[in-house]
Amino acid sequence: MEDIELQQIWKSYDERLQEQLVFNRKNALDITKMKVKSELTAMRPIKIVTVLVGILWVFFLDVLLINLFPVGNYFFLISFGFISLVNKIAVGVYLYQLILISVVSINSPVISTQKKIASLLSSTLWVTRILMLQLPFWTTFFLSSSWIGTGNPVFWVIQVLITFAFAGLAIWLFVNIRYENRDKRWFKFLFGNYEWDPIMKAREMLTQIEDYKEITS
């Protein structure tokens, strides 16, 4: 009789222990998901400011292009036209990222959140690469067609060298801004803490959730 009672007590204790483990596991997962959401939400203010500044900047560029179009300075029109186009793309990408951040929910499946973070990561890399392409055009917008053939040869030599140097830098950055280079010093300097760190922290926490599920399953 005592053996049966002991077995029942042990069974009851084991059931309560399992319930407690399930409860603790659920709490740990929920807390981690909340931290992921918090990390991503922390990016929202800087992205909103970037979008607003970007819209104002593109508007300013377009006003200049429209007002100066009759003048027909091709160096200015092509340079600022490309710069305006690149910044329009950047504004669109940042708006897309804001939407991604807003739809992340702690109740969403982990794999769904992982896909959104992967999209944030990929779009962050791509928008930065695209923005780098405008660098050489900042060295040509002030030139004038009337200077060709009449300008100082030394000036044109220096101008061409500077433009090619910026073009080479733009191409190098476009090629090398990749996830594999995330630990490089220049990469960290380029992205800073506000743009990159929250995504990486959220990504690591989601990986911890997957690892925890495997251990407790």
Rank of each mutant, 00 (worst) to 15 (best):
T113D: 11
V103E: 15
V110H: 01
T113K: 10
L143K: 03
W126N: 11
I106E: 09
Y94G: 00
G151I: 03
L125K: 01
Q134T: 05
G92F: 07
N107G: 05
N152D: 15
T124M: 05
F75E: 03
Y96I: 00
F75P: 02
Y74K: 14
S145Y: 01
N87W: 10
S102K: 12
S122P: 08
S119D: 13
G81M: 11
S79V: 05
T150C: 01
Y94P: 00
L125H: 05
I89M: 12
I148F: 11
W147K: 05
A118D: 15
Y94R: 15
L121M: 14
M132S: 12
V104K: 07
F82A: 03
V110R: 09
S84N: 12
R129L: 05
S144M: 08
I89E: 12
S102Y: 10
L135S: 12
N87D: 12
Y94F: 11
I99P: 04
F137R: 00
G149H: 02
T128Q: 14
I111A: 14
L100D: 09
W147E: 08
G151K: 01
Y74G: 13
W147T: 04
I106W: 00
S84A: 15
Q114P: 00
L95N: 05
I148N: 12
L133S: 10
T150G: 13
F141E: 04
V154C: 02
S122W: 15
Q97W: 05
G92S: 07
